[in-house]
Each structure stands twice: as C-alpha cells, then as structure tokens.
Design a protein around this nucleic acid. Structure first.
Length: 569
DNA sequence: GCCGTTTTCGGCCCGACTGTTTTCAGTCG
C-alpha cells in the first residue's frame, strides 16, 4: 500500500473515532475530506512533502500537514493514538453495519458494554438494546438486518454486471414514467458501483413507487415513502434506490443524484457564496426558483460549463469548468478500432470474418484479433502452426472484406521467468503484441511484467494489475512501479473495465495521463459484444480525464503510436 | 480542522425517511 493510502486510512479512522466520541462534526468531516482527497491524489504524498507542498492540497491545512509530516518521518501519528485511546479494538469496525451509526454504537458501548459483533448480537437477542432511550423494536430489527448485510459482505460490483440489472428495472417501469434514467455512480461510469440510483418523473408517483417495490426481482424493501424508495434486489444483493420527482426539478434532481457527494458539496458551497441554495428541487434565490429543469441550467447559474458526469468527483473539474478549461474527453465516435478481441482460434466464440463484419458495422476502421498464446492451453492457446494458419486467414479476409483492416495481434503469455511465449521471430510477424500474465500468479508478477516490457516487440500490457487473474492467495502486483516502467519504456497499458474490474481504475488513468503513458481500451471481447465493453472502457477512461491523444484507439491504424513505431528509427 | 471576491472568525450541503416521540434524533445518500 502506498503512503497516500496509508495516511488516508488513518485519517478515516480518526474521523470514525472522533465521531464515536461525539466530537464536533465539522472537525470529523475535515478528516474525512482529507482522507478522500489523499486517497484520490495522483501525486505521491512523500514527494509533495519533500517539496513543501502539502498545504497546497485542498482540504489539507497546517494541522493536517503537520500530522502527515509526523507520519512520514516517524511512521506514527499521535493524534491517531489519542483518538482511538479508550475505544476497544475492532469496535469501530461495526460502524460498517448499515443502520448502525456512531450514536447508537456509542450508546450501546456505554450502557451495555458492547465491544464487538458478538456483544452486539447478544444485546439484540436479550432485548436490552431495545430498552435504551430512543431505541425500540423496529430500530433493533433494522440493525439486525444491517448485520446480515454486513456479514454477507455487500461489496461493490463491476459496472458491466450492474448495467443489465438497471436496464431491466427501467424497462419494467417505463410505461408508468415520463422520464427515467440511472443516476449515481453508474451514470458517472465508475468502474464499480456500490448501489444503484434511478430517477423518474411521472404522473402517479405513488403507483411508480408501488410498482418498483413490488418487482419480482426485489428481495427486501428498506424504505418506501412519497418520493423515494430503497430495495435490495436478488441479484448480488444490490441496493437500488428510486426517486420520483416533478418534471420541473428533473435537471436539479439528476444533477443532485448523480453526485458525487464531494462534487455536490462543492457546488452547494459555491452556491451559498453567491447567496443561492441548491437542492434536488432546484436552485433558489430566497424563495424564488431560478433553475432546475435541466442540468445545464443548474451549472450555468453557478457560472459553470456543464460538467460530464464522469468527471464529477471534486478532483479539479469545478475549477476547470470555471475557467472553461475542461478537457475534451474521448467519445464513442472517436474510437477507430479495437485491439483486443478473441476469435474462435482460441477461446472466442465467433470466427474472424464475423468479428470483422461486426466491427465494420460499428464503424471501426480496424480490428485487432488477439488470441491466446500456446502456453494458455485452457484458453485454447495457439501453437506456432495454428498461429500461422490464423494469420493466413486474416490475410485472406483482408483481401475479401474492404473498409476494415483486420490486424494480427496476440495476447502473449508472460511466462514464469518473464520471457514471452513465442520467440521474437514470431512476434515480429504480428502487427502488434499484447503481453499479459496468465500463470504463476504468486511469482514476482511485477518483475515479470517489467521484464516483458523490455522486449521491443511488446506494445501493450493487458490487465496490468491482473485482477482478472487474482482473487488468489499470494497475488501481489505493484502498479505504481509498472506504470513508471511503462512510461520509461513507452509501452501502452490496457484499460479493461469489464474484466479487470478495479484494475486500471480512474485514479491510475489520471496518473497515466500525467505520466504520458498511452492507454488502449481493450474490450477483451470473446464474442461480438464489443460495443458494450467499449462503452464501459470509455466510461472509465473519461473519469481519468483521458483525451483523444492519450488513447491508442482514437488514432487511424497508420498513425497509432505503437511502441515499436515510436522506438524505431 | 479547513477556509476566505463580506478573510483570521464563524461558518461548514441539504433533505428524506424511520422510529420514537409528541417535536426530533439518527442514519443515509
């Protein structure tokens, strides 16, 4: 774990501890903000400290800077020790239980000596928790449900899995609603989503809520009111929130529920300075509503250009919008081709001709066929003979189908010693080479990827943090080190939103942009569902502020700044 | 604890829902 993350976690724990102790909430929030900013900071905190720039970080003032310095120098932070003193180990972990907040936990600790999850379960069962002031049967029942969710581990799920669920819900409600759209982290195209927010307008609010909470996919109804309802659906125990609002508020509501929270807090702060008030119902000057029907309006009254949802993280986008310096983000229309599609030769489900025709229909100018190399036997890896046959077929298809170029690529295994699965003679014949780890997950993954990058024929590293392959004991990869080496060697990295999940997340994409590393969206499609995966990849890329020149896919094939082309001459 | 085009004090986003209460505290997003 890098220092940014370490310190962010300590600040987060301080915030929890202070809140538990009933400390001033604004101070608590200052720690939370600092934690968030640090965890998303593209620069190395140690570097900033050495250059005396800690206080230039938003949310970091004199006090926080001192604490960061203390930690970097000594590995300890007095404030942290102080904050957690007198709190039993592991007690604050219980704050992750839904419906159990700091007040209730503190009360249970003081009055009933609850020190851990078992204690908590005990005081629920014996009825003593319900007897405390302002507690009761129903509150306890909700905490009990929360414990169940907590124990099941409702972790974030990949965007690619959440999208179809949302589509299903939206389709079910369509005939009752006028407008209906996803908001939240899904609209921001976060690579994973924790829950789903859906926004709707329609004549009969009650009916919409009723239908929503009684959908067959709904497992549990958490809340149900006039304007909003929350449910848990059967798929992945995912929480889905629906808000039904009036048409005139649609823009304000869409803006509000799209978030992120940090972005909204920023906007509301700005509004306040101007004597305005923003809520999900609109922007108000006194009692007068001055904006709210469209999102553009809401941003405009604050003197801002409309900000694409993917950027709304309070990561500098508001300042950029103020100065009219928002980047021109990659759009689907910018994509000229795809580098990573598997054919029937290895573990794809479609033949090359079909893929080529589909890609042409999408408007691509080129399509890179990347099959697995010989050592990946399970995935149907190609030996030299099969590869030769495949390449010949590609030649034939290129003769026959005009208007699209089919490229000879391969997803070549990085072997246990860091060498590649084919000799250079073979690699040289390919149009480009993607290298990736598919085996030996416990063995020096970082070093092997770096060694592979030293081969001049390697153009792209796929799933560089290898999450697709992980979830395995002992798998460890140092992405910072890999990125530094990729920058040095001129190798591109692949973004793969669907398969790689948290892999090259938006923070790393932002870092890559600053480091001058080229990225490639690899849909890694195994069938013709390329478009869907491409959407996901672009979403993640946009969150990292990626512009056309940063992305290999936006260049015409002749101009793609492949490493082998750039390092030649 | 941070921050400043009302800047060194006094603010800090705002509202819905729930449950316990009889006007509001806690939790959530």
């Amino acid at each position: 774990m890098n220092k940014n993350q370490e310190i962010a976690e300590i600040f987060e724990k301080i915030a929890d501890a202070l809140e538990f102790k009933g400390e001033n909430l604004f101070r608590v929030n200052a720690y939370r903000k600092a934690a968030r900013v640090l965890s998303e900071l593209p620069e190395d905190i140690e570097e900033l400290w050495k250059n005396g720039k800690l206080e230039e970080i938003p949310g970091i003032g004199k006090g926080m800077a001192e604490k960061i310095e203390e930690y970097l120098k000594t590995g300890k932070m007095k404030k942290y020790e102080e904050a957690i003193s007198g709190i039993p180990d592991g007690l604050l972990e219980l704050l992750n239980i839904p419906n159990l907040g700091p007040k209730t936990l503190s009360l249970a600790y003081k009055k009933l000596n609850v020190k851990n999850l078992d204690d908590l379960k005990r005081v629920i069962e014996d009825g003593s928790l319900a007897k405390l002031s302002r507690m009761g049967e129903k509150k306890v029942e909700n905490i009990k449900k929360g414990i169940q969710l907590y124990e099941e581990g409702t972790s974030r799920i990949p965007l690619g899995i959440a999208l179809p669920i949302v589509e299903e819900i939206i389709n079910s409600l369509k005939n009752l609603t006028e407008k209906i759209a996803p908001a939240g982290s899904l609209r921001r195209m976060k690579e994973t989503v924790g829950d789903i927010d859906i926004l709707a307008t329609g004549k009969d609010h009650k009916k919409i809520i009723e239908k929503f909470t009684s959908l067959p996919m709904v497992k549990d109804v958490l809340a149900k009111g006039e304007t909003k309802a929350s449910v848990i659906v059967k798929q992945h125990n995912l929480q889905v929130d629906l808000r039904v609002i009036d048409k005139g508020c649609y823009g304000a509501a869409l803006q509000y529920f799209t978030g992120s929270k940090a972005h909204n807090i920023k906007l509301r702060g700005m509004a306040k300075e101007k004597g305005l008030k923003i809520s999900e119902y609109g922007v108000f000057k006194g009692d007068k509503k001055i904006a709210g029907e469209t999102e553009e309006e809401v941003y405009e009254v604050l003197g801002l250009k409309w900000i694409p949802p993917e950027l709304r993280e309070d990561r500098g986008e508001v300042e950029a919008a103020l100065k009219d310096e928002l980047p021109v983000l990659v759009k689907k229309e910018d994509i000229k081709g795809d580098f990573h599609v598997h054919s029937k030769y290895s573990d794809g489900v479609d033949d090359i001709r079909k893929i080529a025709e589909f890609a042409k229909k999408l408007g691509y100018h080129y399509i890179g066929i990347c099959d697995h190399s010989k050592t990946s036997k399970i995935a149907g890896g190609l030996d030299e003979d099969a590869l030769k046959r495949r390449n010949e077929e590609i030649d034939r298809i290129n003769e026959e189908i005009k208007g699209i170029k089919v490229l000879k690529g391969m997803e070549v295994d990085i072997l246990q010693d860091g060498s590649l699965d084919y000799p250079d003679k073979i690699l040289e014949e390919l149009d480009f080479v993607i290298a990736a780890i598919h085996q030996g997950f416990k063995k020096n993954v970082t070093e092997r990827i770096k060694k592979a990058m030293e081969n001049p024929f390697v153009d792209i590293i796929a799933h560089p943090t290898g999450r697709l392959l992980s979830g395995r004991e002992g798998y460890e990869v140092r992405i910072e080190e890999i990125m530094e080496y990729a920058a040095e060697m001129g190798v591109a990295l692949e973004i793969n939103a669907y398969f790689d999940r948290l892999d090259l997340n938006d923070i790393n994409v932002l870092k890559a942009k600053k480091m001058g590393i080229k990225l490639a969206i690899g849909t890694d499609a195994h069938n013709v569902g390329m478009l869907r995966y491409m959407d996901l990849g672009i979403g993640v890329a946009r969150r990292g502020w990626l512009e056309k020149e940063n992305l290999l896919n936006t260049y015409e094939w002749e101009d793609v700044p492949l490493r082998r082309r750039r390092t030649k001459k």
